[in-house]
Computed example of a mutant assay.
Amino acid sequence: MTVITLGPEGTFSHELALRLGCDPVVLEPTIHSIFAGVAAGNGDGIVPIENSEAGGVGETLDGLTQYPLSITAEMYLPIHHNLASLVPLDSIRVIYAHPQTHEQCSGWIEQWKVPVIHTSSNASSAIEAKKTPNAGAILSVSAAAIYHIPVIVEHVENNPGNTTRFVRIAKNPGPDCRAGKCSILIDPDTDRAGLLYDLLGVFARRRINLTRIESRPSKRGMGKYVFFLDYAVSGCTDEALRELEGITTIRRLGCYPTIGVPP
C-alpha cells in the first residue's frame, strides 16, 4: 500500500514511514496535499495530529474537517530537535524552523536571540539554511545527515520527553477489532448555554474515558467551533454516539489501534 506523508526527504513524518516499513512512500510538500492525495485514492496518509509540547496540528485538524476520510491507526514518535549550521553559533544571523518546531524549541531560541523564519517542514529548513549565508536550521539528526549540515547544538527541544502523535488516514474505516481508541468530530448546529456540558455528559454518565478534546474554528464565522474528541473504547460506545447524534451533528472519524514504532 502506498503511503503519502510530508516531505521533502528527512522530515519526522518521512522518518516514521520508513521505520514502519512503508513502501512505497510518496512525499508531499504540505499536509493539505496529503489529504488531497488520500481523498483521490492515491494511497493512505501519515500525518502529525498533536505534539506533547505544542498541542494540536491545525493543518491536520482542518484536513479531518474538510475531507471525508477515516483514522485507521495512531503512532507515537519521540521528537528530538537539533540546531545545525555550516557556521558556528555566534555567526548565525537567521534560523529556519517549522512553526511547530519553533514552539517546541522556544526556550533555546529565546536564549539565542536570532530571528526565525518559518518553513513548511524540518527538511525544508535544512534546504533553506544550506543555501543562505550565516543561517541555521532546527531539525532531526537524520535530516542533518541527509543534507550534510553539521549539528552544532543537540537536543534543543524544551522538554526531553517531547513526543508527536501521528495518525494514518484512509478513504475507508479500518477494522476496529483491535481498536483501543476512537475519534469523532462534533459540529454543533446550535449555540446555546450548556451545550458542551451536555455533550461531555454523554461520556461522563457512561464512565467513558475522554483522552483528548480540542476545539478548532469552523471557518464559518467568529465564535463558531468544531470539537475533536478522542475516547477509549468501551461497551457503551455505540449507545453514547447514538445519544450524541440526537443532540448535535457528529462525524465518526474511526476506531483504531496504536501501532508501535520500531527503534
Results as ranks from 00 to 15, higher is better:
Pro68Thr: 10
Thr237His: 13
Gln111Gly: 13
Leu241Gln: 03
Ala17His: 06
Asp62Trp: 11
Gln104Ala: 15
Ala36Met: 12
Asn82Tyr: 09
Gly201Trp: 14
Asp23Met: 14
Ala123Leu: 01
Glu59Thr: 04
Val202His: 09
Asp23Thr: 12
Arg165Gly: 00
Leu86Ala: 06
His155Phe: 11
Glu53Cys: 09
Ile186Met: 04
Arg242Gly: 11
Gly45Trp: 07
Ser121His: 07
Ile208Asp: 10
Ala84Trp: 09
Ser142Glu: 14
Pro257Gln: 06
Pro8Ile: 03
Thr101Asn: 03
Gly55Cys: 13
Val116Asn: 03
Leu18Pro: 00
Thr72Asn: 03
Lys224Trp: 05
Ser121Ile: 03
Gly43Lys: 13
Val38Lys: 04
Pro68Met: 07
Ile184Glu: 06
Arg242Ala: 13
Ala97Ser: 13
Trp112Phe: 11
Glu128Gln: 15
Glu15Cys: 01
Thr65Gln: 14
Gln66Ala: 08
Val47Phe: 03
Asn134Val: 03
Asp44Phe: 06
Ala204Val: 11
Gly174Met: 12
Gly223Ser: 07
Arg251Val: 15
Ala17Leu: 07
Glu50Gln: 13
Ile79Ala: 08
Ile146Phe: 14
Cys182Val: 08
Ile117Ser: 02
Glu28Asp: 01
Ala123Lys: 09
Ile146Asn: 07
Ser33Thr: 15
Gly254Asp: 00
Pro188Asp: 00
Asp230Thr: 10
Thr65Gly: 07
Gly58Lys: 14
Cys105Gly: 05
Thr60Trp: 08
Thr5His: 04
Asn82Thr: 05
Asp23His: 15
Ala144Asp: 02
Leu253Ile: 12
Leu20Ala: 05
Arg192Thr: 13
Asp191Ser: 14
Ala97Lys: 05
Ala73Pro: 00
Pro175Gly: 00
Leu241Ala: 00
Glu103Pro: 02
Ser52Cys: 06
Ile109Asn: 02
Asp90Asn: 13
Phe166Glu: 02
Val87Gln: 10
Thr30Val: 01
Ala54Tyr: 11
His81Gln: 11
Ala84His: 06
Val202Leu: 09
Thr5Trp: 04
Tyr231Lys: 03
Ser85Ile: 02
Ala36Lys: 15
Ile46Thr: 01
Arg178Phe: 04
Thr11Asp: 02
Ala193Gln: 12
Pro48Leu: 07
Asn51Leu: 10
Glu110Lys: 15
Leu210Asn: 05
Thr237Asn: 12
Ser125Tyr: 01
Gly246Phe: 01
Thr237Gln: 11
Phe227Gly: 00
Tyr231Met: 13
Leu139Tyr: 07
Ile138Ala: 09
Ile46Leu: 15
Gly136Trp: 04
Glu214Ile: 11
Arg178Gln: 10
Arg216Tyr: 10
Pro188Ala: 10
Lys113Cys: 11
Gly56Arg: 13
Lys113Ile: 04
Phe228Ser: 04
Leu6Lys: 04
Glu157Asn: 08
Pro48Gly: 05
Ile186Trp: 05
Ser121Trp: 06
